[in-house]
């Protein structure tokens, strides 16, 4: 298993349990799309639950220099959930994708964008 010493992008997917706030079909499409794409990613059962119990997994998910795509819900909720678990996300390099408002297709397209084009975008910014 490779660590994040390189600046290669990471993906974190939240499977949002207990409530149907994320449409189940969006969740399924994104999870299957990620798994079928052959890219590496971290998947968590429920970021809210991990934050409530301050699970150390959040520390590792927030750690490292690599840019990270978090696929979950509203960015403000995700940011402060990590903060609540004393695992604050870095100020730069984090993109949060909202499965409550985006389609599965749009989410996958954004997350699976080829790494080279992401780097170019970032270099231009």
């Amino acid at each position: 298993m490779s660590e994040t010493a390189s600046a290669e992008k990471r993906i974190v997917y939240c499977h949002c349990a207990y409530a149907r706030v994320v449409p189940p079909e969006v969740k399924e499409e994104v999870l299957e799309g990620l798994a079928n794409s052959g890219v590496a990613f971290d998947a968590v059962p429920d970021l809210c639950e991990l934050a409530a119990r301050q699970d150390p997994a959040l520390q590792r998910l927030a750690a490292g220099d690599a840019p990270v795509d978090i696929v979950a819900c509203y960015p403000r909720a995700v940011k402060w959930l990590f903060h609540a678990a004393e695992a604050s996300l870095p100020d730069a390099g984090v993109t949060i994708h909202n499965m409550r408002t985006e389609t599965g297709e749009a989410t996958l397209a954004a997350v699976l964008e080829p790494a080279s084009s992401i780097e170019l975008e970032e270099a231009k910014a």
């Binding site: 298993m1 490779s2 660590e3 994040t4 390189s6 290669e8 992008k9 990471r10 993906i11 974190v12 990620l34 798994a35 794409s37 052959g38 890219v39 590496a40 990613f41 971290d42 998947a43 968590v44 059962p45 991990l50 699970d55 150390p56 997994a57 520390q59 590792r60 998910l61 750690a63 490292g64 690599a66 790494a115």
Partner: peptide, 16 residues
Amino acid sequence: YTVTVTGDERSVSPLD
């Protein structure tokens, strides 16, 4: 369970 799927592209969160 938290699950790490390894693959060809992208990296994953560090070991802890």
